[in-house]
Amino acid sequence: MKIVHYLNQFFVGLGGEEAAGHPPEFREGPVGPGIRLNELLGEAGQVVGTIFAGDNYFSMNSSTSAEVVEGLLRALDADLLIAGPAFNAGRYGMACGEVCSVAIDRLGLPALMAMSENNPAVELHRAEIPILRTSDSTGGMGQALEDLAAGASSYLGSDGGWSAASSLLLSRGIRLNEVSPDRGSKRAIDLLLSKIEGHPCLTEWPLPDYDIVQPSALEATNTEPVLALVTEGGLVPSGNPDRLNSGRADRWFRYSVERVASLMSEEFEVIHGGIDTSASNENPNWMVPLDMARKQEPKGGFSLHEYVYSTTGNQGSMPAMRRIGDEIAAELHNAGVHAVIATST
């Protein structure tokens, strides 16, 4: 069985950021981690070639990249594409997703990619591309290659399904319909009677993940506590210079409000894509209450942090929102902020 492997510029030895714009290229046989992967595959398959590109190539050449990759893949007539492992590297993960999508959608070539569940490419592609679970960092390379070899072998030995490898894969995150032996009303009664009797029962629809976090208390300080304003309402300077997403946000920004008394509609706007923003655009303080904070600052027993923090919650995925929250929290912690007032739509 013929396997083609996709890697980024770093893992084929071209370098780091300086080579991040490198266009897709092909080399015969395995390269870098592909050499070990090829050994582990043994009789199951052979890495016949390696395609690689710089991490920034795909975002910089979005209109032509698919054609270029398609051309390289077509010349190979492989049985399977393996991309990664990309661990938690976001741009590398996105590139793996692009290459696998081209293989599956344009050539009907099966593809498998490997990365950490926290890689931003996971949310985008998990429904369509099988994704093998790895650690966050390259320290898990050995395990990732063993798992990739095992997953690829089980696929190549099957009649075209990934079910035998499912313990190595991330869930697709989708809900598909099927016909149950019993109708819903009977199942509802059966489950209720089990619950009344105290038997353990399984819900048919698990609740979304949420954290139970112990509330923090305000730290005692000698000076007035520093308070930061945060929003998921999509507040940006007029014109949205940093291009914050209006939905499915993957980023956050901080904007200086040092010596700013109030958010003026000429200077700030709200770009949240899920709500009618006319009121908040008329008065951005209705989304982020800076003017009230300034008014109450002298007597309120707090001093205001020099930045406001903004992202967009509209259609946000839980992992992305959690990451954004962690990043803002880390910055606030380092900046010595004691408390947060956040607003949400």
Binding site: I174, L176, N177, R183
Partner: peptide, 8 residues
């Protein structure tokens, strides 16, 4: 109906 959905 007997329709139900399951995670994949």
């Amino acid at each position: 109906t007997n329709v139900t959905a399951r995670s994949h």
